[in-house]
Amino acid sequence: MCLGIPGQIVEIVEGVDAAGKLAIVDVGGVRREVNIAFIVDKEHTVADCVGDWVLVHVGFAMVRIDEGEAAATLALLREMGEYQTEIDSMQTSAAGNPA
């Protein structure tokens, strides 16, 4: 229901009112100003946000994307593929054996 797209924060917009917490995000070469208030806290300051991959929705960075979790999801899918290739090759070689 809610279009969200991954983008990378490339710079903080300086000089606007402090409450704004604005940054420029890059989505495939397209740039847009986004509000980063939702991803900033004591441990992760405004300055820390540069380079972050975030999920952008209606002009707000909603969450920092967890790179480790993304890698884990893809690794699982890769293993699934490799496992099947293995089974396939076992079946092929079994079928290819002279009876």
Partner: peptide, 14 residues
């Protein structure tokens, strides 16, 4: 499945 974006407790600031 969407652990790269969804934390168990959501976004507290939001």
């Amino acid at each position: 499945q969407y652990a790269r974006v969804v934390p168990r407790d959501g976004n507290k600031v939001a």
